[in-house]
Design a protein around this nucleic acid. Structure first.
Length: 509
RNA sequence: GCAGCCAUAGCUCAGCUGGUUAGAGCGCUAGAUUGUGGAUCUAGAGGUCCCCUGUUCGAACCAGGGUGGCUGUACCA
């Protein structure tokens, strides 16, 4: 007895950490990108697009002791066995591009670029394996004014996106200051050194874990809420107290006075040459910020900003949102950093063997968008502006198409109902679709040379007062009948009443 | 990666110590309504109870393994 062969049905599902993005969010992101681009353009940056994947060695993510790329990046082998990796940021590809085209580029070279990047990590709320970044970088700029400009531009970007001053902060530190700190407590300046890395990571967590948590991480280690244990840096008590002194010195002054913060740091790392160099750089940035009128309500110096350990060599900065928000369940949400950057003088050296100084700023578009969506009022339903022309008579499709064409020529978005159902379903479709207007031309209207226009927005309002069905139907809520020739103008009047009539070439949203 | 919790209809969930045809609300489809989205009423569709193996006369429920999700933590260029 042969069993009927089972048809294989794949499970329809989006891969973990990836997502489908619906219309409102696609539009919101496009709008956000346009605003960021305008700021970058105004600072003189030019666009550049590089490919989505690169040779893995060019991205610099090969595991040192194995012949395959780092697990954090998505990689595959080409037909010639060479490893390719999806880009995990836009900076590494820029370094490759500059190295490859070095002689033909103006130096300094300013470029901006946006696009998706991919990281093979555990996804979390607001954290995906594909997300969008929008970077601006200056390559071949050794002067500290370049870093200062990046910070100020970061502030300008956030304000251009409508985030009020005071609701965000650009937080700035300098890797040289951190190196100086480690030097003063006798820890190797080598960024590859285990203790060096552990200490910096601990400092980075001050914001999250507080003084006590950082103290534990610097010492023996810390147990988290689930009972899992994180091994610490194993510092001695005196060393820990120096680090905590540094982190906390000037913390109270962080948003009051940048110079005072630097004074505090100078006391802790004043014996280290590299530390002093870092502080002097920050002092120069402070002077530039102040001269340009960027106070601590926009840019502050902050001791726990560390950034990744990979390639930063000088000033580092993060853009953080300070306002409170609640998620769907009413829990307070911390946004974290929505942008970051810093100086990376060694990245291009990997390719060219010569030092090419560079600094840049990167907006985390996906996370910023997720954050803004949680703000009150962000998810108010936006009224659609698509006019739906009902197709009541299959034999008259050409006539409905003509109506639709006229509406489009009149500057409106319009579509014909192209499903197979009757009038009731068509009205329901228009409602679902969020259409403001339904255009109805049945046999009666056509015979009379008329069309019926139904104002669906007004109809919804009217329906709130009507509980009786007969009344609702007889009232023919909010509809008018006009001569066919006047259709376009009449639809415009209804759209204008609801503020949906386009006045320029841009799509309103 | 490590640790904890969780997995039943499209969604949110109920399902007593293992016992026949697994339920609710919302949503969806249709009818009441001859040409009208809302409201109301009625009817209908929709489930490999995450997967595999085991225990048992019998498993949505118990055990082991797997997969997926959430939370914390680590990593984060």
């Amino acid at each position: 007895m042969a069993k009927p062969a089972k048809t294989f049905r794949p499970k329809a599902r989006v891969p973990k950490g990836l997502r489908d993005v619906a219309a409102p969010q696609v539009r919101a992101e496009a709008e956000m990108l346009a605003k960021i681009r305008a700021v970058y353009e105004s600072y003189g940056f030019d666009p550049l697009e590089t490919s989505a994947f690169e040779y893995a060695d060019a991205l610099g993510k090969f595991l040192p002791d194995e012949d395959r790329p780092n697990e954090g990046v998505f990689s595959f082998q080409d037909d010639d066995e060479q490893w390719l990796s999806l880009r995990y940021d836009l900076t590494a590809p820029l370094a490759r591009f500059v190295a490859e085209n070095y002689d033909g580029l103006p130096k300094p070279f300013r470029r901006y670029q946006s696009g998706p990047v991919w990281r093979n990590e555990k996804p979390g709320p607001g954290r995906f394996r594909q997300f969008t970044q929008f970077d601006a970088d200056i390559v071949g700029a050794p002067v500290i004014a370049a870093d200062a400009e990046m910070c100020m531009m970061g502030a300008d970007v956030l304000e251009a996106l409508g985030i009020p001053r005071g609701d965000y902060r650009i937080r700035v530190n300098n890797r040289k200051v951190l190196d100086g700190l480690l030097e003063t407590i006798g820890i190797s300046a080598d960024a590859e050194d285990r203790t060096h890395m552990t200490v910096l990571r601990s400092i980075d967590k001050f914001d999250k874990l507080g003084r006590r948590g950082v103290e534990l991480l610097l010492g023996d280690g810390r147990k988290d809420e689930s009972g899992d244990f994180t091994k610490g840096a194993g510092l001695k008590a005196e060393q820990i107290s120096v680090v905590l002194d540094y982190v906390e010195s000037g913390l109270a002054l962080a948003d009051a006075d940048r110079a005072a913060v630097l004074d505090g740091w100078r006391k802790v790392v004043g014996t280290s040459a590299i530390g002093i160099e870092g502080i002097d750089e920050l002092a120069e940035m402070d002077a530039l910020f102040s001269a340009a009128g960027y106070g601590t309500d926009r840019i502050e110096f902050n001791s726990w900003i560390v950034r990744g350990l990979g390639y930063y060599t000088g000033p580092v900065f993060e853009a953080e949102l300070l306002m409170e928000a609640k998620d769907e369940k009413g829990n307070a949400v911390r946004f974290g950093s929505v942008g970051s950057g810093g100086r990376y003088d060694g990245l291009i050296e990997r390719f060219k063997g010569i030092k090419v100084p560079a600094t840049g700023f990167s907006v985390g578009v996906s996370r910023l968008q997720a954050a803004l969506a949680l703000l009150p009022g962000a998810n108010d339903d936006k009224q659609s502006d698509v006019v739906v022309v009902l197709a009541l008579d299959a034999a008259n499709m050409a006539g409905y198409q003509a109506m639709t064409r006229e509406l489009r020529a009149g500057g409106m978005r319009a579509e014909i109902y192209l499903g197979g159902s009757g009038m009731k379903a068509q009205m329901k479709y228009a409602d679902r679709r969020g259409a403001p207007v339904a255009v109805i031309e049945g046999e009666d209207e056509r015979a009379a040379g008329q069309v019926t226009l139904k104002d669906l927005i007004l109809g919804t309002e009217v329906s709130r007062e009507i509980t009786d069905n007969a009344e609702w139907r007889e009232s023919q809520a909010a509809q008018i009948t006009v001569p066919r020739a006047d259709m376009v103008e009449a639809v415009k009047v209804i759209l204008a009443r609801h503020g949906l009539l386009k006045t320029d070439g841009l799509h309103r949203s």
